[in-house]
Amino acid sequence: MKKSIIIGKSNVGKTLFMINFAEFLGLEKIYIIQEFPDGKKLNREMSIEAAREYLSSSSKYKTQCIQSIDISIPVYKGKKEIKIMDTSGLIDGIHPDISIRSGIIQTLERLHTCDIIIHIIDVSLLTQGILLSQIDRQIIEYGISRRGYILLANKIDLDKAKIGLNKLKKDYEEVYILPMSALYKTGLDEVKAFVIRSI
């Protein structure tokens, strides 16, 4: 089974993207496996609505562990199983909370074993003269050096996000950048096409 990992800074919409992507692929219920840094594992089954309410929020660091779901994607006439891993958000420097640092370590450990890297950034933040954060730039550089890397420019629905997107495209011409909105479920079709191409 191919593994894909969703990474990015905190509060860019990683978990919401995973849930909505699962829904987009036709799942009504998701069976989610949570792996905590201390080795504890939790299996949960919930409906899409419940997952959206329970797992994602608009505040930072809702996700503090690896959450993965297995999805089968129709490819031509058959189906392919992939594992999608949602991770705890990354942050520049040293985060003061050790439990969050442990969550980040989980992400780093898994990063190079994954076949597909889905990197999400909040493109609406780029407008106010703020540059892309250092960790995002590092991930992009790592992504360029390997296969199966995609950069999702999330929150394209917000005002001024287009400006940020253009800036991003100009800075990283060689990266495959996809504008989308996890909240309003736009651009998911292209993500699906990319995933199918990569497996």
Binding site: L90, I91, D92, G93, I94, H95, I98, I104, Q134, I135
Partner: peptide, 8 residues
């Protein structure tokens, strides 16, 4: 993990 170096 023990906060000695930065994530970057």
């Amino acid at each position: 993990k023990f906060g000695k170096v930065s994530l970057n």
